[in-house]
Amino acid sequence: MNHQPERLYLYPVWIRIWHMTNAILCLTLIITGLSIQFATPGTVIKFKTAVSVHNIAGILLSLSYAAFFIGNLLTTNGAYYVIPVKGFLDRLLKQFRYYTVGLFKKEDAPFPVSEENKFNPLQQSTYVVLMYAMVPFVILSGWGLLYPEITVKSFVGYSGLDLTDLFHIIAGFTISIIMCVHIYFCTIGKSPWSNFKSMLNGYHESH
């Protein structure tokens, strides 16, 4: 563990293509989503355009998610998303301490990137919640809004469509926040740009 290779081929082509597609689609969905949410006559993006683009991007995101999902079932990449339960909280706190204290003291990362551990515990748990809870939820609720006739009409006295809409927006907002933090954390690498480069060339550069 002490010796880390300088460059580690960690991101195979399919992951990079998926990641890039996912990033572009999510950004498109956030921008058009906000534009629909705060629609007023005469906004920058026309409402109709925003809705069409949002719908198309949403459908493409479903496909891209399916690719990620199946890819993770079939390849070893899925293993990175398995959280070992034992000592989980300790590891989480350790990583949290590193980001809030250790990093500034120039300490070594407690869970350096390796072939076995692509993600640190904090990353791992965020990604699991994001990719296996938030994204499926936002996709399902999105389809429910795209085809209102398939949505349950009422749920415990509330309009089913309104609830779907509300949860879709909350989930979308949460994903947007996670995305902001994700992009910022990517600047914590060998250099502020090295992690972004990794997602293009596939090689991870160690600290």
Binding site: F69, N72, L73, T76, G78, A79, Y81, V82, I83, P84, V85, E116, V128, M131, Y132, A133, P136
Partner: peptide, 14 residues
């Protein structure tokens, strides 16, 4: 590898 003894989240989602 760790995943052999754990359940992949993908199955949970399924």
């Amino acid at each position: 590898m760790v995943y052999k003894t754990n359940i992949r989240p993908a199955w949970v989602v399924l």
